[in-house]
């Protein structure tokens, strides 16, 4: 029993097989196709959205990387670019937009406000969107220059390049576990005091039930 089961547990969650010649070649082709036609979903709110628009316009020209097709519908998008501050009033909208995107999907948190709340450590602001949705790449800056955003997108491309189709854990989706706390909430609270602050987040969104994912489950079940 013991040893074999423990070994099994360390294998990828789905697929359950080591990479072979065929799968790596398929991975190569699929990842090449995926990474060169990323369709961003621009979730722009504030200053960063203007820099995102500047990235798409002539001088910086996102089209060079196959990303000029801004997908304003989350159903067709691959990368969520959350550009700008996110107040609590907008939090459920962001979460729902993310939930509506099809797999495979990635998320970029653009700018200080989206990544950590930035200067807005106040009553109305989400302190980092990673309390709401999982984030792949954080782009620092206030706002980041278009080059910064493009670099962030290229890091997503790099991430895709190393993905394996056999690794189902990458595509595993658990809406209620999205943005799950890394430490348990009592531990986080002990670190951050009563309110938490911009640098030490309480990653708690999984503690909150949104209305939407529940209904999805009802539909499936």
């Amino acid at each position: 029993m013991g040893i074999i089961d423990d070994n099994k547990r360390q294998l990828p969650v789905a697929g359950n097989s080591a990479p072979t010649f065929l799968t790596t070649k398929v991975d190569f082709v699929v990842n090449w196709a995926r990474r060169n036609s990323l369709w961003p979903m621009p979730f722009g709110t504030a200053c960063c959205a203007i820099e995102m628009m500047a990235s798409a316009a002539s001088n910086f020209d996102l089209a060079r990387f196959g990303m000029e097709r801004m997908s304003f519908s989350p159903r067709q998008a691959d990368v969520l670019i959350c550009a700008g501050r996110v107040p609590y009033k907008l939090a459920p909208v962001l979460r729902r937009t993310w939930d509506q995107m099809m797999q495979p999907k990635w998320c970029i948190s653009m700018g200080a406000c989206a990544s950590s709340g930035g200067v807005f450590d106040t009553y109305s602001m989400v302190q980092g969107i990673d309390t709401i949705v999982p984030v792949d790449v954080y782009v620092p800056g206030c706002p980041p220059r278009p080059e910064g955003l493009i670099y962030g997108l290229m890091m997503i491309q790099e991430k895709i390049r190393n993905e394996a189709l056999a690794d189902g854990s990458l595509r595993k989706e658990d809406p209620e576990g999205a943005g799950k706390p890394e430490a348990n909430s009592s531990e986080v609270r002990a670190l951050t005091g009563v309110f938490g602050n911009s640098t030490q987040q309480e990653k708690v969104s999984s503690l909150a039930q949104t209305a939407r994912p529940g209904r999805f489950k009802d539909l499936l079940g």
């Binding site: 609590y88 979460r95 989400v126 302190q127 609270r189 309110f195 938490g196 503690l207 909150a208 039930q209």
Partner: peptide, 15 residues
């Protein structure tokens, strides 16, 4: 920073 903890604020926001 509001009267509630960040945890509670996020929870209420997502509700």
């Amino acid at each position: 920073r509001g009267k509630f903890s960040r945890e509670k604020q996020t929870k209420i926001a997502l509700e």
